[in-house]
Amino acid sequence: MMDFFSVFGFDANTEWVLTGSLLLGFASGTIGSFVLLKKQSLISDAMAHATLPGVCLVYILFQVKSIPLFLIGAALTGLLATQAIQLIINRSRIKTDAAIGITISVFFGFGIVLLTYIQQHFGGSKAGLDTFIFGQAASLVKSDVQVITIGSLILTLIAALFFKEFKTVVFDPSFAKGIGLPVRLLDGLLFSLVLLVVVIGIQMVGVVLIAALLITPPLAARYWTEQLGVMAFLGGSFGAVSGISGAVLSTTIDHLPTGPMMVLSASSIFFLSFLFGSKKGMFTRMVKQL
């Protein structure tokens, strides 16, 4: 893998970044397939936005720049946000979409408050927390990327290992219960995978747009296949391509933010699939009707 990139003349750090973005893209595309089928695309967006206050709170409490601590904080507030959405839906007359909207804007708004608080009181530009908003691959150091790379690998492995079980649970929970699968446990595991891929991805892609890497690649894959297995793999591949092309462009061209470039790559793949996809693409359908 490493030798493959060095052909293009990237330095060692960039190679790490590229490997990380590739694997992160694959993990999010694969796990995103389940998110899509569970109709939780926007909940994952809320979760992503809500990680910002977590990162900031950890910095205010411990006043150190420590990636593991940041990620724990991010996971905690991300989890809190999804709980808040559930609570609002179950305990009031507010419906799902508004509950998600409330959570996104309030958590993120509070994150911005904390971010400016840090800048005022700790000279926080040193902490580089700004990069969490849109992600900046160039600012990542080797240990950051190692977290992303190894984390993505493990998440993808778990998704592959429990693929059959996840598929059954997502598709037909009552059937899954009937054949003796631990539905709650598997649901919880799947949820953890989503949360973790968001958390490890925010440094590179940013909290504002990381959800797009979960939503767009699998949706593009839907235009090529109707089988979940193929969709997950294809979604992963699209994610990997988006991740690496975004990273390459943002490291080679000055000022380009990484996250938005990755998302634009994914959107381009989606657009092409929407037009030319072999199953549901617009042109394919038109040709079939002729």
């Binding site: 939780q40 695309s41 747009l209 797009a212 939503i215 933010p257 938005p260 470039m261 959107s267």
Partner: peptide, 17 residues
């Protein structure tokens, strides 16, 4: 929900870039 997700992230990303 997915339709909303794709459209706004695409447009927003383009705007930021």
């Amino acid at each position: 929900d997915a339709a909303i997700g794709v459209v706004f992230t695409s447009f927003f990303a383009l705007g930021v870039v």
